[in-house]
Amino acid sequence: MRMCVDMKKCQYHGQCVIAAPDLFSFAEDGSLKWVETIDDSLRQQAEDAADVCPEQAITLEG
């Protein structure tokens, strides 16, 4: 499964980092980092992140 974050929508709330700490993190400079290709074992975390994002900026494909 592939995960995209629309950075035009993202407001850096970090709710994805809270919901899916294995897939999202903030770098030292404050930018958002995420895993783009999701292993099946982390599917649930990815779906949780997409669900909670207040801006609904996260999309999953496949």
């Binding site: 709710q15 809270i18 919901a19 700490p21 949780d48 669900d51 909670v52 609904q56």
Partner: peptide
């Protein structure tokens, strides 16, 4: 602690 509570609460407040 905040993150743990928030993760627990999230499903009960989901957009679905």
């Amino acid at each position: 602690d905040h993150a743990r509570l928030r993760r627990l609460a999230n499903p009960a407040f989901s957009p679905k």
